[in-house]
């Protein structure tokens, strides 16, 4: 049997978390392979799956056995996001090759014995935020009262009931969280075209928590913005310790979703209640690391260097994990 011994990073060099992981692994003198998606036309993959998972990855003139990989950190972009692939079009060899490489590695990352941060199946939990919110509630955090509707009258009722209401995307597509204001009155009719998610606004102190295996990195965020990620209002961040029970719930949340690395958005109200808004399966942790000095990349690097063995649950199916939690949430 081939000894597992190296780490695979898959993504693009200009992606800040991917770049940070390369730096962290170099600092740790760890061997790693960087599969740069820009070089997809010089990349070949052969994946053979039956009673075992085998195959070969070639980048330029370098060959690697897939069985050599003990862990992987994935931040790939869809092939069509690259101009050279998009320009070539869906009927071209270039397009077909880029997609086959993507699908082969995607498949490999679902079934390999290597530790994968994070497996695509697990990362999909964020595809529906209300679906994820049900899992979050089942594990002990509060979530804001929510209405998803295509009915402007119901949205207006919900707004009146909660006074301060935000709206945000339902899917994993990034959107700016915004507060409903008078200017939205005339646009409410538009929600008949597409279901829209409204939430009771929860005031309090924002926290961003990164879970890496068993380690928890938290920072408190002071801001007046509805969505500090896109605000030009001042944002202050400070590394902090969470109450042990909150940190434990964060760990449990990530583990129950089979996420080795997760970014969790929390808010603590003045009454001391902890609300959770989202668990991000592919967090852009560098934004927080750069402002707080939290050594998140180094922690992920250590985790990847430990490799296989942490990744016990190889087939996280819905019935095994999220579905049972989901049912618990739906019943409660």
């Amino acid at each position: 049997m081939t000894e597992n011994r190296t780490i695979l990073l898959w993504g693009i060099p200009e992606d800040a978390p991917t770049a940070a992981m390369q730096d962290a692994l170099r600092r740790a003198n760890s061997d790693f392979i960087f599969l740069n998606q820009h070089a997809v036309l010089r990349t070949t993959v052969e994946l053979i799956v039956g009673s075992s998972v085998e195959g070969q990855l070639r980048i330029g003139d370098q060959d690697f056995g897939l069985a050599q990989i003990k862990s992987a950190y994935l931040r790939p972009y869809e092939p069509a996001a690259f101009p050279q692939i998009a320009r070539a079009g869906p009927h071209s060899r270039v397009w077909r090759h880029a997609h086959t490489v993507y699908q082969a590695l995607h498949s490999w990352s679902e079934i390999t014995d290597a530790l994968v941060v994070n497996r695509p199946d697990a990362a999909a939990v964020n595809n529906s935020k209300p679906y994820q919110a049900a899992l979050i509630e089942a594990l002990g955090f509060r979530t804001p009262r929510t209405l998803i509707t295509t009915d402007p009258a119901l949205a207006l009722d919900f707004w009146r009931q909660h006074e301060v209401v935000i709206y945000k995307s339902i899917s994993a597509v990034r959107s700016i969280v915004s507060r409903l204001s008078d200017k939205h009155h005339c646009r409410l009719a538009d929600i008949a075209n597409c279901p829209t998610q409204f939430q009771q606004y929860i005031s309090g102190t924002e926290y961003r928590v990164h879970v890496v295996g068993d380690e928890v990195f938290a920072c408190a965020i002071t801001t007046n913005a509805d969505d500090y990620r896109y605000s030009d209002k001042p944002v202050q961040m400070q590394a902090c310790e969470l109450p042990p029970e909150v940190a434990a719930t964060c760990r449990r949340l990530a583990q129950s979703m089979n996420l080795h690395v997760a970014g969790i958005d929390l808010r603590r109200t003045s009454q001391g209640d902890w609300y959770c808004f989202e668990v991000n399966p592919s967090p852009g942790f560098t934004y927080f690391e750069n402002q707080t000095g939290l050594a998140i990349a180094d922690s992920i690097a250590r985790f990847l260097m430990r490799g296989t063995g942490e990744n016990r649950q190889r087939y996280p199916t819905r019935r095994d994990s999220d579905e049972s939690l989901y049912q618990a949430a739906a019943v409660s």
Binding site: T44, E46, L47, I48, H97, Q103, A104, S107, Y315
Partner: peptide, 23 residues
């Protein structure tokens, strides 16, 4: 590929599948 692995893990004999990505 994942269906093949899940079948194998469930004790079902499987026919191997090979995906090749060369330009």
């Amino acid at each position: 590929e994942k269906w093949v692995r899940v079948a194998y893990e469930a004790g079902v004999p499987v026919e191997s599948i090979c995906r090749t990505a060369v330009p």
